[in-house]
């Protein structure tokens, strides 16, 4: 079965690049969502995705509520950010962090590791 990846990223170019890269290796993309509200409304739908890629900052807003919602649903996720790990709130910093700019290969490897662990 194809794994569905929720993509939460406000930078449209990056979202498109990641979506294309992930689709090329066989993932199905949910989103991309550019805001916290949008991401939370997608997460409200039952069984929406198997894993998530979460930008730490969405239109100047912290992605912390999305991370908490993902944790509550036991959905594994990767945090992408241009910030340093030390600048992130704990709930985000304890997740797997990929520093921008993102290499698709590294993201794919991390998602497969997370999905394999489940």
């Amino acid at each position: 079965m194809t794994a569905r990846i929720l993509l939460v990223e406000d930078e449209a170019f990056i979202a498109m690049l990641l979506a294309e890269g992930l689709e090329n290796v066989g993932f199905e993309i949910v989103g991309p969502c550019a805001s916290v509200a949008r991401a939370l409304s997608v997460l409200d739908q039952p069984d929406c995705c198997d894993a998530a890629v979460l930008d730490a900052n969405l239109r100047g807003e912290s992605a912390l509520p999305v991370a908490q919602a993902l944790r509550a649903r036991s959905i594994p996720f990767v945090v992408t950010t241009g910030y340093l790990q030390s600048q992130l709130p704990d709930a985000l910093a304890t997740a797997t962090i990929l520093s921008k700019p993102i290499r698709i290969a590294a993201l794919v490897a991390e998602l497969e590791r997370l999905l394999g662990r489940r």
Partner: peptide, 15 residues
């Protein structure tokens, strides 16, 4: 600045 620069590099990569 660090955050935005790295974000911009991601955008440049995508473009």
């Amino acid at each position: 600045v660090n955050h935005r620069a790295k974000n911009m590099l991601g955008v440049v990569m995508a473009v």
